[in-house]
């Protein structure tokens, strides 16, 4: 791929980036994953979805999880959010073992999971109310979160009146309103069109900048992973296990223009190598069958 331009190694970091990572590792550990694994028992026997994996996430870090389909990246994040049981190992949140779903871990899903019978404001208030808050302060707080995602004008709308991007922004506001220790995002922009998607990515970085929250973000889009993350957890399929935990050498603050910078491309090249290793899908192997007459040569 890179015969044309000579790229630097993705491991080369500028001084500022190196200093930033040194700072990150100084921070307290927010999430400690210890030998967490997942397997299913089926009629054919036990199927290991995820071999025991361990890693740490530091406070206010932005981690992406990436890997080929079937590598268990969604399963991992659903286990951490408490939506699925852990087959082995444990994970600690702020040093304490967490089990089952709870308000300390927020989640944004790929599908639209806003409650359709509640207005935007009531959706954001939901988490606060079920956790025992009430009164006008809840409403004010909800409005602040809605303003944060830039939807103050739509507070009284129902989800069915919003576009896909707006729905996901509300979902982020709703998850953040509980002030979770960590926010899990499972391909949240997967269903959006490319334009909205890149808007949402910039928007998410802005929110993350303004809010004290640690984010774990599952995606299969390499650009998205690099553009957003401090580190990228690359998983491998059958069974799922960690291939590499890549430190993204692209300096912050990020801008879309950086997508063409050498560090960005070098990281992307590395991810390509890890996720699509030497695939035999060259068109040369396909038999040449012409169903219609072709007179002019396109090449």
């Amino acid at each position: 791929m890179s015969d044309i331009i000579e790229l630097p190694s993705y491991k080369e970091q500028s001084d500022s980036v190196r200093a930033r990572f040194a700072d990150i590792y100084q921070r307290p550990i927010k999430l400690e994953v210890k030998d967490v694994s997942k397997s299913f028992n089926t009629a054919k026997g036990q199927i290991d979805v995820l071999s025991p994996i361990s890693f740490n996430v530091h406070r206010r870090e932005f981690i992406s999880v990436i890997g080929p389909s079937g590598c268990g990246k969604s399963t991992l994040i659903r286990m951490l959010a408490g939506l699925e049981t852990v087959s082995g190992g444990q994970f600690l949140l702020d040093g304490k073992e967490a089990s089952g779903p709870g308000a300390d871990r927020g989640m944004v899903f790929q599908g639209y999971t806003l409650f359709p019978w509640l207005t935007v404001k009531k959706n954001v208030m939901f988490g606060l109310e079920v956790n025992g808050h009430s009164g006008t302060s809840v409403e004010q707080e909800a409005m602040q979160w809605i303003e944060l995602v830039g939807l103050g004008h739509a507070a009284e709308s129902y989800p069915s009146q919003l576009s896909g991007g707006m729905k996901q922004r509300v979902a982020i506001a709703r998850a953040l309103a509980n002030q979770p220790q960590i926010l899990f995002m499972d391909e949240p922009f997967g269903a959006l069109d490319p334009h909205t998607r890149s808007q949402m990515q910039s928007h998410l970085l802005q929110i993350w900048h303004n809010v004290d929250v640690t984010i774990m973000f599952v995606t299969h889009d390499l650009d998205e992973a690099i553009y957003l993350s401090d580190r990228i957890l690359v998983l491998k399929a059958n069974p799922g296990e960690i291939q590499e935990f890549i430190e993204v050498p692209v300096p912050r603050p990020r801008t879309p223009e950086q997508m063409l910078s050498p560090e960005f491309l070098a990281t992307k090249q590395r991810l390509e190598e890890l996720i699509h290793p030497k695939e035999h899908t060259s068109t040369q192997d396909l038999p040449i069958v012409r169903m219609t007459s072709v007179n002019d040569n396109v090449e």
Binding site: G82, P101, G106, M107, G111, L114, F115, F126, V130
Partner: peptide, 26 residues
């Protein structure tokens, strides 16, 4: 939609709240 229930769980809703505030209105 099961994802509505999961969303409510991650927002901290417990069984009874879930029935009252998610399942019934849904």
């Amino acid at each position: 939609d099961a994802s509505l229930i999961e969303a409510a769980q991650t927002l901290g809703a417990k069984t009874f709240t879930m029935i009252r505030r998610v399942i019934i209105p849904g």
